[in-house]
Every structure is written in structure tokens, then in C-alpha cells.
Nucleic acid binder design. Structure first.
Length: 390
RNA sequence: GUGAUCGUAGCUCAGUUCGGUUAGAGCGCCUGGUUGUGGUCCAGGAGGUCGCGGGUUCGAAUCCCGUCGGUCACCCCA
């Protein structure tokens, strides 16, 4: 027995319906909003993510699917979408400002569990180029509208992490503080001290929380321009009547963010999407000087938190004679009427049972030349007019 | 990377503790009949390398080791 690759998925049955529902809502909505859909490769040079996500982050150090191709190139299966969009923008649209959307598989080598898979789908949008606080607001506003149509009680958390140099200063002070309290920290947090000091703030260990409570706050290190920018965004959210919560511990997993960071979570605190501003990403990658802001949603995490009504076929074409079946098919096809039919010429009783199982509404019996309403059990002679009246 | 738990028919599972003749059930599927205003019922049938590999044994679904996969949690994150 050949089993599936660990952490990959077969999206089937109810999940396929959810997947397609989310995908089409996403494409329609952001298409209308003016975001251009682009599909970048699943394979990228490893270097792209080493530099962008941050060489000390777990995604880069432990979670990338790396491979060397026959030409000796170091490639990875993409772990996220933003870096590819930035690469694309610099290659084809540098010096312009664009709104992009993408939807597809990402790969991270981690142990799978609920809401976390090795191959998973992200739906994301980005505004790249010359941008301002209105761009930040737009990303939040548009994605807020999108996600609330799927999960109405989604919570929005926002924060500002200041400029990169603000953050460097803050991390130094924070590091000193934690070093002085090292003996009270959990083992995991101590391990993060050297390379990931900021992420200690994310800890949910109860002992850590005590220390974190009185740790220096990033707010005291944020420069005036960043603070002004943040309050501008908050004002915009207020006037759009988008409810949010400021979460000063909101430090996102990717190093390229500055100033605005935000997250969407369900009422039971499953993070289903997040994003922020990345003014230096292009420069870090030596791709130019343009800025960006974006958001990405975990499609599976949305799927795990919605239920959608089932979609039933209306008609079922029953019959045991190919000539009759073909005649009816042709008639229905010509009128653009969709219908289900048996996969093979099984006996009429099996087909009848199949139609009932699929919850179809009308059974067209080509053997008897009748159409039957399976809910009321009324049968009448078949004619195309009967169907056109439905 | 760490830990827990599971893996027997298409599906849900019994059998594994205390190893022993051709590995079972329900549902589903197929065939024939019955019903015929059809979804019922009856009879028969197909379908299993017991996740995979090795070991112990006269003998392994059952015991031991390894491995792959599912689920869940930690870490981390979407």
C-alpha cells in the first residue's frame, strides 16, 4: 500500500465544496476590488526566503522543503507567498504600484496537526509599490469584508512594531531585561533569547507571562512618525466602523514586517489570517526600493471553521437504453440544463436509489418517457416545456 | 524536533489482554427475484499483502524491534 506523503491532503467531499466556495468568493471579491490575480511558481530559489523571512526564523531554519535540482540549483517549495510577489513585481512592474492576489499551495516541513499541514493553501493579497496609510487601511478593510462574509464573528487584532531600527533598539533592551530574569523563564523562551528575543513575547507559558507583563513595551521605542502612521490607520478603521483590538504582543512570524502588523482570529482564537507592512523587503532582497503591505489567509483554517449549504443537482436522467439516454441528453444539453446521470447502465432500481441518495428533485425516466418529482411523487409525461417551467 | 494515540473489506468497527484449524459483523457494492408508482423485502455473490519490513515461534492480525501513515498536543505558525 502506497500511502500519502505526510501532511499532504486529499481535499474531497464536503471539503472540496468548501475549498471551491472560498476560492470563488476570494477571486470574485478581490477581483472586483481591483486586485490582479497572479500565480507565481511553487518552486523558488532558496535564497529568496533565506533573506526575506529571516535567517533565524524557524520557517527558514527547519521548515523549508529543500531540494537540489539536476543542475545543482538550490530550490525550495515556497513556504509563503509575499516574497514571490515582491520578486515578480520587481521583475515586471518595478516603479509602478499594483494590487495583487494569489491563491495556492504553500509548504512547510512541520509535524501536522489540526489547522496545520505540510502542504496547505494560502489566499493572499498585496499592495506593492508606492504606498501609504490608505493602502494599509485598504488591505485591512478589504480582507475584513472578505473574511466576515465567511466567518461573521472574526476578530481583528492590530499593532505597530515600529521601524526596523526602532525594533533593533527595543530588542537590545528587551534582551537585557530577559537576561536579568533568565532564571524565571521557561526552557523554550531561554532558547529564543539569542536569536528570537521578540518572540518570547508570544509565549503562553504562565511563568513567562509574569515576566512578560513587566517587560519593556515596544510602544516606548516607536518613533513619532510610526506612531502617527499607526493612529492614522486606526482613525481610518474607526470611521469605517471596523472593530479591532490593539494587541501589543502581536509579533508576527516573519522578519520582514515593520510598523503595521495585524491578525484575524475566530471567536475561539484560531488565527486564520495575518499580515502587515513590509517597507524594506524589496531592499533586503536587492530588488529595488518599493514598499508593500499585504495579508494572507489559511484556506484550511477557514475550511475548518465554516459550514456551507450543500449543492444538489436538480435533475437525474435515468434509463437503461443508450439511444434513449442520448436523445434526452442532447435535448437537455441544447437547453443548457444541468443534470446528473448514472456512471454506467445499471438496472433501473439501482439508478432510482442513486438519484434518491443524491437528493435530486426531479427524475427523468427515459425508459418510460416521464418526469417525476421525487418530493411529491407526482409523475407526468416528459416534455422539455415541463422543465423550462421549473 | 518532542510526546500521546491509532492503522483489520469501499466505510464504521469486532477479534489483539492469555499466539492455534479456510480472519468476522453491520452498512455499502454487484447479480437474480420481489415491489411497481418504484426508496421495501428475499436469495446469492464479489471484495482483505490484518499499513509495510524484520525478529521470536512448530505456528503471528495477536508478542518484540524498526519504519510509513492518520489523529491530537507541544514547539512554531496560516
Amino acid at each position: 500500500m502506497i500511502e500519502q506523503v505526510k501532511g499532504t491532503q486529499n481535499i474531497s467531499n464536503d471539503d472540496s465544496l468548501k475549498y471551491l466556495y472560498i476560492q470563488s468568493l476570494f477571486l470574485n471579491k478581490f477581483g472586483d476590488y481591483g486586485y490582479k490575480y497572479i500565480q507565481t511558481p511553487l518552486l523558488e530559489y532558496k535564497e529568496l526566503f533565506d533573506k526575506s523571512i529571516g535567517e533565524s526564523s524557524e520557517i527558514v531554519t527547519k521548515q523549508m522543503y529543500e531540494l537540489t535540482d539536476k543542475g545543482g540549483r538550490e530550490l525550495v517549495l515556497r513556504p509563503e507567498g509575499t516574497s514571490s510577489i515582491v520578486r515578480y513585481h520587481s521583475e515586471f512592474n518595478k516603479d509602478t504600484t499594483n494590487k495583487y492576489s494569489y491563491f495556492g499551495s504553500m509548504f512547510r516541513y512541520e509535524n501536522p496537526q489540526k489547522n496545520r499541514y505540510r502542504e496547505f493553501n494560502q489566499a493572499g493579497v498585496e499592495i506593492v509599490g508606492l504606498i501609504d496609510e490608505y493602502s494599509d487601511f485598504q488591505i485591512i478593510n478589504d480582507s475584513y469584508n472578505f473574511i466576515n462574509e465567511l466567518i461573521p464573528d472574526t476578530k481583528l487584532k492590530v499593532n505597530t512594531i515600529g521601524s526596523i531600527s526602532d525594533r533593533e533598539k527595543y530588542v537590545k533592551v528587551l534582551y537585557d531585561y530577559f537576561i536579568n530574569n533568565k532564571d524565571k523563564l521557561s526552557q523554550e523562551s531561554i532558547e529564543k533569547l539569542e536569536n528570537n528575543t521578540l518572540r518570547i513575547l508570544d509565549s503562553n507559558n504562565t511563568d513567562d507571562l509574569e515576566i512578560i507583563k513587566s517587560a519593556p513595551k515596544i510602544n516606548d521605542f516607536i518613533n513619532a512618525k510610526s506612531q502617527k502612521s499607526f493612529s492614522l490607520i486606526l482613525n481610518n478603521l474607526n470611521s469605517a466602523e471596523i472593530s479591532y483590538e490593539i494587541d501589543e504582543s502581536l509579533v508576527r512570524g516573519l522578519d520582514y514586517y515593520n510598523d503595521l502588523t495585524f491578525e484575524f482570529a475566530t471567536s475561539n482564537n484560531v488565527v486564520i489570517g495575518g499580515g502587515g507592512r513590509y517597507d524594506n523587503l524589496a531592499e533586503i532582497l536587492s530588488l529595488g526600493k518599493f514598499k508593500g503591505v499585504g495579508v494572507a489567509f489559511g484556506v484550511e483554517r477557514i475550511m475548518n471553521n465554516i459550514s456551507i449549504p450543500e449543492n444538489y443537482t436538480k435533475y437525474y436522467l435515468l434509463g437503461t437504453d443508450v439511444k434513449n439516454l442520448t436523445k434526452y441528453s442532447k435535448m437537455l444539453d441544447q437547453h443548457n440544463i444541468n443534470y446528473n446521470k448514472p456512471a454506467r447502465l445499471s438496472k433501473a432500481n439501482s439508478q432510482f436509489k442513486e438519484a434518491k441518495k443524491q437528493n435530486v428533485m426531479y427524475l427523468i425516466n427515459t425508459d418510460e418517457d416521464t418526469i417525476k418529482n421525487l418530493i411529491t411523487n407526482e409523475t407526468e409525461d416528459f416534455s422539455i416545456e415541463v422543465i423550462l417551467e421549473h
